[in-house]
């Protein structure tokens, strides 16, 4: 499978990344390199091997349903660019 420059631009748009033509070209070259690696791996015979959803063969540890985190709003908002009335402010979004 090969990656087109349009695929790169589409992914960039979905991730809200503004890529210039030159940046898109660079990303295309880099991503294509990764695709090459994947192609090599796909050549390996994996007949009868169950796909893994995680690299380690361990399962999820569960946490008891208890409130352990207190209010740290002031601390967290001290690094926010803009806050008001306890809210984080971001450029206006209307869908």
């Amino acid at each position: 499978m090969s990656l087109t420059i349009n695929d790169v631009k589409k992914v960039a748009r979905l991730a809200r990344l503004a890529a210039t033509e030159q940046e898109a070209q660079i990303a295309h070259a880099q991503l294509s390199g990764i695709f090459g690696l994947i192609a090599e791996m796909q050549a390996v015979d994996t007949t009868g091997i169950e796909p893994m959803s995680h690299a380690q063969d361990v399962t999820q540890r569960l946490r008891e349903d208890k409130v352990t985190e207190g209010d740290q709003r002031e601390l967290f908002q001290s690094i926010a660019p803009q806050v008001e009335a306890g809210l984080y402010l971001v450029p206006q979004v209307i869908e």
Binding site: D65, V67, E69, R73, Y88
Partner: peptide, 27 residues
């Protein structure tokens, strides 16, 4: 109807002051 969030220990109580139940995982 859990007391805490699905992936962290912050409270899920309704109607709290904005962001007072938004812990490091929530944000």
């Amino acid at each position: 109807s859990t007391s805490s969030k699905i992936f962290s220990g912050a409270s899920t109580a309704f109607g709290a002051e904005p962001n007072t139940q938004a812990d490091a995982v929530s944000i």
